[in-house]
Design a protein around this nucleic acid. Sequence first.
DNA 1: ACCGATATTATGTCTAGACATAAATGTGGG
DNA 2: CCCACATTTATGTCTAGACATAATATCGGT
Lengths: 232, 232
Amino acid sequence: MSKTTLEQRIRSDIEARIRSGALRPGDRIPFEHELVAAYGCARATVSKAVEALAKAGLVERRRKAGTFVAHPHVQSAVLAVPDLEKLIAARGEAYRWTLIEQCRASASDLETGDIPSPALRIDGVHHADGVPLALEMRLISLSAVPLAASQPFGERSPGAWLLEQVPWTEARHEIGAANPTPEEAAALDMPTSGACLEVRRWTWQSGAPVTYVRQLFPGGRYHLMAEFTPGA
Amino acid sequence: MSKTTLEQRIRSDIEARIRSGALRPGDRIPFEHELVAAYGCARATVSKAVEALAKAGLVERRRKAGTFVAHPHVQSAVLAVPDLEKLIAARGEAYRWTLIEQCRASASDLETGDIPSPALRIDGVHHADGVPLALEMRLISLSAVPLAASQPFGERSPGAWLLEQVPWTEARHEIGAANPTPEEAAALDMPTSGACLEVRRWTWQSGAPVTYVRQLFPGGRYHLMAEFTPGA
DNA sequence: ACCGATATTATGTCTAGACATAAATGTGGG
DNA sequence: CCCACATTTATGTCTAGACATAATATCGGT
C-alpha cells in the first residue's frame, strides 16, 4: 500500500463528503483557513488539495466567496479507443491480421482522409479467435512516415507499428453507424443488412496529417465503452 | 487576453519544445535546478509547471534520473456525450421532444437497465428541425428520484430535467450499432434495413442506480465526436 | 431607496527555504 | 567479475510566510 500524503488525505476527505451527498452541489466547502486550522498544516497544502478537486471539476472556486461543490454540467466521458491487437490479446483471444490490399492511395481516398499525396492505402481485417472483428481501411502519409512504404503489412497490423513509430500529438474521432457494402459484408462474414459501428480517426503530429483510419465493426460483435467518474 | 503566470509560461515553453519535436519521446527535459536558474524563480514554481505536464501525461518523472518526454501509449479520447436538447439548440436547429409512452417499467425493462423496482419508463423521440434525430428509451429509478413520478414528460425531455435534479457521480456508456425494429424504424422515419448508432448509458449517484437510457440514432444523421490532444 | 466609493476577505501566485525518499552511481570485498 | 553497501542526487512533500487580485459587503451621500 502506498503512503498517503496529507494533501491527498485532505482531498479524499472532502471528496468523500461530496460523493456521499453530505455536501451537495452549490454548498460551500470550508475556507482554506478553516482547513488549515482543522489539519494543522500550511495553507499551500490545503490549497493544493482543493486546487486538485477544482481541476477535476468537482468544486468551483470563487475569489472572496469561497469554494463550492460544482453542479455537474457537461456530459463527457473518457472513451477507450484501444489498439485492437492488444484488446483482443487482453481478452485472451487469438489475434490475427489479414491483409486485403496494399497500394498507393487514390485521389478520392486522399480527399476523404484529408491526407496529402503521396500516401499508402492498406485494407485488412482484424480477427479474434478466427472471427472477423473489424474491417480496416487506412491511409498513411508517406511524407510523415516514409518508412511505411517498405513495411510488410501482410504480416503485422499497421496500427500497432505506427503507434511505436510516430508519436501523434492530436487525434479526432467520429463514431457513427453504417451499412456495409456487399464486399465489406463478405470480408466481415456478415449479412449486408446488418448494422456496423463505424469509427473514423484522423491523427496529426504537430499539425501535419499522419494517418486516417476507418474501422467497421459488425453490430453486436463489439461495442466501445466509456466510463466517467467526475474527478477520478 | 488573460495574464500569463510564470508557471504556465514555463509549462508552455516545455510543451512547445515537445510538440514541435525538438524534444522527442525518451529525451530528458532540463532538471528542476536548471529551470530555476534559467527562469530565476523558486523551485516550487518550476516544480508545479513540470508536475502539471506529468499529470497531463506528456512527461514522466523519475527520482534521481530526471524528467523525460513520455512515449504516447494508451489511445483514449474525451468523448462528448451531449445533452441532445442543448446540442440541437447549439446547431441553430429547432428542438422538439415527442413522448411516445410513459408508464411503470416492466420486470424485463428493469433487468436490462439494472434499475431496482419501482421505476418509470419513458419512451420518446428527439427532433431537430422536425426530423427525428434519436429515439430514446429511458428508465428512472423512483427510489432515487421520487419527483419523477409527477413530472409531465410529454412537454419536456427527461434528460435535461434529470441532469438538474440529480447530480450523478458515475456513468458508464456502451456504444454500438444495431438494426431498428419495425416500430423503432417507423418512429425514426427510416427504413428497417438502415443501421443505427446505439448509445446505452447507466448512471449512478454514490453507487445507487439513477437512470438507464438507450438512444438510437439513424446512421448518417448523427455521429459522436471525440477529440484528443494529450495533455490539453 | 438607490448608487458609488471603500474596506474586507478568500483565493491566486510566488519565494526561500527544510527534510524525506527512491533510484542511479560509485566503491570495496569476496 | 559480480554482488552488497554507502553515497549522491533529483524529485516529492511540506512550512511559513509575502503580495496580488477580484469579488463581496459596508458605509455614506444624494
